[in-house]
């Protein structure tokens, strides 16, 4: 039993030593120009569909930082589902900063690994969320089924597409937004709200595992009358697959989806990158960055910039998880726990 393992381990160890030695040398060579206060590169770990946005933001920051400090800086990027990304950071991925699309996946860096402070949400403005979005609707051109609001999603003649809320963070926002709407409509009657959401679930012909798969279902397999996803995605899909083929519809009420950021304290302190990491996240709040972010259809807090992109951002009443549901902890316990309210709405169909 151990013979082959030993052989493998021995070989692997030999190789590793060489590789690691090589890797460490390479690592030692490239960061830190002489006399600098920090490393010459930082790693920002972000969510899976942020490639275009951060691809545009990072060069602007790199230029600004170099002008200010005369130190060259490279912002490296890792893209992936944020739950997986958080797990990687907990297991040692050397992220200086995170820019996620789920509050809970940042929180876990504190809860499971103590990598960030408990009060991370107070380190940057707007609860450390430089931009935000909301679950919104994408319908086929001309809106043939006349879908305007959440009420239309329970109609018998409407087929709704969104991913499985058991596996997709995106769909959990949709579930919570629909629930928030129903709670408002039925004056806080949870039983009626669950029934309302259940009716929406009954109108979903396929539950894909993730947001990208649902987009394929809606766009390429042409199933369903309305796709529910983040507003920024809605615009992204229209841009990619045809502005004339799809229309965006904003419901009357939706849920604020924060895109939280944090400096990963443990990594930044160890690498001596705190100054540049903090500056990078501060930069996301700057006018220049907010303009780029708004152009990618995320809503920003700068009212003037929001106004210049007003056509992309119709007025909507936004409620928060804290206001409606009492925070993410409570949501996890009451809605998403096994046998919770989500299961009741989801299983009974």
């Amino acid at each position: 039993m151990s013979l082959r393992n030993l052989a493998r381990l021995g070989l692997a160890a030999l190789f590793l030593t060489g590789l690691v030695a090589g890797g460490v040398k390479a690592n030692a060579a490239d960061p830190a120009a002489p006399g600098s206060q920090g490393p010459g590169e930082i790693l920002n770990v972000t969510y899976d569909v942020g490639r275009e946005l951060f691809g545009e933001l990072n060069p602007v920051f790199q230029k600004a930082w170099q002008e200010k400090t005369s130190q060259p800086i490279t912002v490296n990027q890792s893209f992936g589902g944020t739950s997986k990304q958080a797990r990687s950071i907990l297991e040692g991925l050397q992220a200086d900063t995170v820019t996620f699309n789920q509050v809970t996946d940042v929180q876990i860096l504190h809860d499971k690994g103590g990598l960030i402070a408990a009060d991370w949400q107070s380190k940057f403005p707007n609860k450390s969320s430089p931009f935000y979005s909301l679950p919104s609707f994408l319908v086929r051109a001309g809106n043939p089924k006349n879908i305007r609001d959440w009420d239309d999603l329970i109609r018998d003649d409407v087929k709704v597409i969104f991913p499985n809320p058991k596996t997709s963070g995106n769909a959990r926002y949709t579930y919570l937004a629909a629930t928030a709407y129903a709670l408002r409509k039925f004056d806080g009657d949870q039983a009626k709200a669950t029934e309302f959401v259940q009716k929406i679930f009954l109108n979903v012909p396929v539950f894909d595992a993730g947001g990208r798969a649902s987009t394929t279902t809606f766009v390429e397999r042409e199933i369903g009358d309305v796709l529910i996803t983040f507003e920024a995605e809605v615009q992204g899909i229209r841009k990619e697959f045809g502005l004339d083929k799809y229309d965006a519809v904003t419901p009357s009420l939706s849920l604020l989806a924060e895109f939280p950021v944090a400096v990963v304290d443990q990594v930044a302190d160890k690498r001596g990158s705190r100054a540049v990491a903090t500056a990078y996240l501060d930069f996301l709040y700057s006018k220049a960055a907010q303009e780029i972010i708004a152009a990618h259809a995320y809503r920003v807090n700068d009212a003037a910039i929001l106004a210049t992109h007003a056509t992309n951002f119709p007025p909507v009443e936004l409620v928060t998880v804290e206001d409606v549901f009492g925070g993410w902890d409570k949501v996890a316990a009451e809605h998403f726990a096994s046998g919770g309210l989500l299961d009741q709405a989801f299983v009974n169909q």
Binding site: L19, S88, L90, E91, G92, G113
Partner: peptide, 25 residues
């Protein structure tokens, strides 16, 4: 990994295997 079996030992010597080219290999 950091929270894995060898994590503390590797961390003590500041050796990072995961999330690097050696890990892929």
């Amino acid at each position: 990994g950091s929270q894995g079996l060898l994590g503390p030992v590797l961390a003590a010597y500041d050796i990072r295997i995961m999330f690097s080219v050696p890990a892929i290999m």
